[in-house]
Design a protein around this nucleic acid. Sequence first.
DNA 1: GGATTGGTTCGAAAATATTCGAACAGTCAG
DNA 2: CTGACTGTTCGAATATTTTCGAACCAATCC
Lengths: 119, 119
Amino acid sequence: MTPSLIDLPHPDRDELRLTDVLFALSDPERLAIVRQLSDGPLEMALCHLSDPSMPKSTKSHLMKVLREAGIIRNEPYGRGRRLSIRHEDLEARFPGLIASVLHAAKAPDADGPGEMEGL
Amino acid sequence: MTPSLIDLPHPDRDELRLTDVLFALSDPERLAIVRQLSDGPLEMALCHLSDPSMPKSTKSHLMKVLREAGIIRNEPYGRGRRLSIRHEDLEARFPGLIASVLHAAKAPDADGPGEMEGL
DNA sequence: GGATTGGTTCGAAAATATTCGAACAGTCAG
DNA sequence: CTGACTGTTCGAATATTTTCGAACCAATCC
């Protein structure tokens, strides 16, 4: 009866909410994930986080927020999972949004390594 | 010694963080405020919220989040305050971002009045 | 089948954000 | 100066997110 883990629920294109998308992207770790995926689909195991010691349940939760916002697709792939950005759906609903976010994300944003701000 | 309320702190252009901007925009009420300001500067008293009965402290807090993210400017204006979007700074740091958000925001997004989703 | 790898879900604790009343500050009118 | 009007700040209650271990599920390898 439970939808079985193999197929996770993804929101339909028409159900995407701008505020949910923006919220999902507003976390540095999640934004970094999306940036990695911008080069193309990636196996989840190969998608690395800023902190390699982060528990897998936390990583899974980050992916869940991105998936439920409609930003990424998460499908079974061999023994693991394959992640990809839902470019077409995002572009159809929010034209130019992801492109501008990804473009801006490449600039230093205090997320990456920078100078100390103490002096 | 306290900076006196008349001049609130605004982050410098170089200090704007993408994730903070996205977070500030990820709230429906705040997004609605930004949308109103997209037509040009507005006195705070004339900037109305979805719920007119919302306390002024809450409204002030919403403005604070937008201001601290660097999205809006908040300056004294007569007896009250004048709000405006920091278009130039935002465009310089995150080209196309605000434009795409504002464009997308005009589409129905379950934030504005729409059909019931029950049927 | 049993062990291993890769990932989701659940539940509870910790961290953050939101809400709102009360007190305060600045401006204008009289 | 007093009072009315506008908006900020503070503090505490509430709500929402985040984090992470433990249990579980599915596919692969032996």
